[in-house]
Simulated scan of single mutants.
Amino acid sequence: MEENLPKSRYNVAVIGGGTGLPVILKGLKKLDANISAVITVADDGGSSGAIRDYINVVPPGDIRNCMCALSDADPTLIELFQYRFNTDDDFLAGHAIGNLLIAALKEMKGSMSEAIDFLSRFMKIRGQILPAAPEALVLNALFEDGTIAIGESKIAHHRKKIQEVIVTTTSGDEAVKASPRVVDAILEADLIVLGPGSLYTSILPNLMVKEIGEALLKTDAEVVYICNIMTQLGETENFTDSDHVEVLHQHLGACFVDTVLVNTTEVPRDYILTQPNEEYLLQVKHDFKGLRNAGCRVISSEFLSMKQGGAYHDTDRVVEELGHILNTTKLHRKNASDVNVY
């Protein structure tokens, strides 16, 4: 989508999904950079899950949210795109208008890439939105006790320690192929940002697509991981920041994360004790020695923002740091011999 990619000083690829990715994308629009958002297609819950069950389409929810984050359209149009039908609307209950538009355009255009490109022009997207794969994928979790959970939305409910996650096609084959332009976006990037987002269900589903994982090990870009502020029940209970990175390195079989952004501000105790639905558990503990042993540079700062009743990353502070990395860090050229095998 060349018309949406004006000549800028840098290329930045952001990989993830869930609620964390759009928060960072909004801020990245301020940088002198072409932005590529690589988004997970393994979501099988909520409106996205219902749509992918009935229509041959990748789950549109994360795509919709990232479009809104990168959109320069009229705020009223963005609000309409995000509007979700009320629960008493029978068949349409819970569906966002944007999800339905994405699904409809995919049928009209014949491919998700063409549908997103068309809608991106309409929504005045600054950058490009790239589903990780051209088809909906299935996330499988192998637990340490040998049992397996199938489906992204089911993994956390088991409350077991995850040994690894595997991504397959809906027919059970290995997920190999990335969507058009994804590999190029990674290989041409000056900076690659992972997260913030759920480690096992938002970030790793992208990396476990074979072509994406291979591209991350080849890229010359600086790879930055934005570590989560809170642990998550059923995923990262009792995890330190170095545990998060260790899981990433184990899954790709190499130490590929160059820099880790870590929040040092303490989350208010009252907030932790009043968490609804036990979505979060505790604040992620620090292990700076473990991060350095994994070959990572550590940037720690007050990245916490308590807003909208939750503990989030402060968009401005995080993007300021990412901009500093782009502007002042001499990006190291890497090749296969430079990547430490895990």
Score class of each variant (00 low, 15 high):
residue 237 E to T: 03
residue 146 G to M: 01
residue 303 F to S: 06
residue 131 P to Q: 00
residue 109 K to F: 13
residue 20 G to A: 08
residue 3 E to F: 07
residue 235 E to S: 12
residue 146 G to Q: 03
residue 142 L to Y: 11
residue 65 N to Q: 06
residue 2 E to F: 10
residue 72 D to L: 11
residue 64 R to F: 11
residue 49 G to M: 13
residue 57 V to N: 10
residue 307 K to G: 15
residue 97 I to E: 06
residue 74 D to Q: 01
residue 37 A to V: 01
residue 337 S to N: 13
residue 29 K to W: 01
residue 261 L to G: 05
residue 223 V to W: 00
residue 106 K to M: 02
residue 149 A to E: 15
residue 35 I to Y: 00
residue 81 F to Q: 04
residue 325 I to F: 03
residue 116 I to Y: 14
residue 253 G to Y: 07
residue 180 P to D: 06
residue 287 D to M: 06
residue 64 R to I: 14
residue 287 D to I: 11
residue 114 E to H: 09
residue 167 V to D: 06
residue 267 V to H: 07
residue 244 H to A: 09
residue 321 E to W: 04
residue 203 I to N: 00
residue 107 E to Q: 09
residue 66 C to W: 07
residue 107 E to P: 02
residue 147 T to M: 00
residue 251 H to S: 03
residue 182 V to K: 06
residue 299 I to S: 11
residue 188 E to I: 02
residue 308 Q to M: 11
residue 132 A to M: 13
residue 61 G to P: 08
residue 143 F to E: 08
residue 130 L to V: 01
residue 123 M to R: 00
residue 227 C to V: 06
residue 124 K to L: 09
residue 273 L to W: 05
residue 42 A to W: 08
residue 269 R to F: 13
residue 112 M to K: 05
residue 257 V to M: 15
residue 204 L to N: 10
residue 190 D to S: 02
residue 172 G to N: 03
residue 77 L to K: 13
residue 204 L to M: 15
residue 310 G to Y: 11
residue 314 D to F: 03
residue 75 P to W: 05
residue 274 T to N: 11
residue 299 I to Y: 09
residue 87 T to E: 14
residue 179 S to L: 13
residue 192 I to Y: 06
residue 190 D to V: 00
residue 5 L to V: 05
residue 230 M to Y: 09
residue 15 I to T: 03
